[in-house]
């Protein structure tokens, strides 16, 4: 597969022989790859290649008919989405899925929900421990806001924000959960160059400063080749190639898939 540094012991996520069908449609067939702790891993492929399905399998939206997913040493076939979140998987969506009625801050605070342990009676009465807990989480949320440079829109309902900022808030909500692994579904889709550059910087900072493992789907090849350590290429639900950006770029199968050449 990839370079010599690959060793299964360091893998935070292992996808083994995953097959997923919707009725007669084969969305994924026998896909296997791994993600190492602390790397930026990209999943690329033409439209309909099964990239989003792959992410949905990883965080439990879809349950594959065959194969297994091993995250942090725990193997599973079926897991519910909220359990995946509890294990440290956070994600963003291709079509932004923010809580539109809430402010930026509230959206980011929902990312802290899992970490809040106090009894709801204490919370309702806003008593001692619950109050302290709320403050701590609020502080963390503010750190995320500072990090993403969205202080100015803290109190703005997200439905009023422009697209690029909404994407950033969504990233913030995912970061607020302090995930071990971050799944980003086309984080740069629909952005202009400047917004893309910002987003790249945030992703690299998250990865570099907090050591968060990142798995991302992206169509912008320039971005993918720049920021990812290794790349998985899917086509028609099958694994086409897996390796460093350079290896993938030179792989004739990949070139075919993208340019549509027929080879014998």
């Amino acid at each position: 597969m990839a370079g010599p540094e690959t060793s299964p012991a360091e893998a935070i996520l292992e996808v083994e022989n995953v097959s997923l069908r919707f009725g007669g449609v084969q969305a994924l067939s026998e896909v296997s790859f791994d993600v190492q702790s602390g790397e930026v891993r990209a999943i690329i492929g033409p439209n309909g290649a099964g990239k989003s399905s792959m992410l949905n399998v990883i965080n439990g939206f879809y349950h594959p008919q065959e194969g297994s997913i091993t995250f942090k040493g725990v193997t599973r076939r079926r897991m519910r989405t909220h359990e995946a979140a509890a294990q440290g998987i956070a994600r963003t969506f291709q079509n932004i899925a923010l809580f539109r009625g809430m402010t930026t801050l509230d959206n980011i605070m929902t990312g802290r929900n899992l970490k809040m342990k106090r009894n709801f009676l204490l919370q309702a009465l806003y008593l001692g421990p619950a109050r302290r807990e709320e403050m701590e989480h609020r502080e963390f949320a503010e750190r995320v806001i500072d990090f993403l440079e969205i202080q100015a829109i803290r109190k703005t309902p997200v439905s009023r924000l422009p697209y690029g900022l909404q994407k950033r808030v969504e990233l913030g909500r995912a970061l607020a959960a302090e995930p071990d692994m971050l799944l980003l579904d086309e984080p740069m889709a629909g952005m202009n160059t400047e917004e893309k550059e910002d987003m790249c910087r945030f992703i690299l900072d998250v990865n570099g400063e907090f050591g968060t493992t990142v798995v991302l789907i992206e169509h912008d090849m320039g971005v993918v080749m720049d920021i990812s350590d290794r790349v998985v290429v899917l086509d028609y639900g099958r694994l086409l190639a897996d390796g460093t950006p350079d290896e993938v770029r030179r792989n004739p199968l990949v070139i075919d898939a993208y340019l549509g050449t027929v080879r014998d």
Partner: peptide, 10 residues
Amino acid sequence: DDHQAAMAVG
């Protein structure tokens, strides 16, 4: 607001 997103944040 959003079922899917709610599940994704746990």
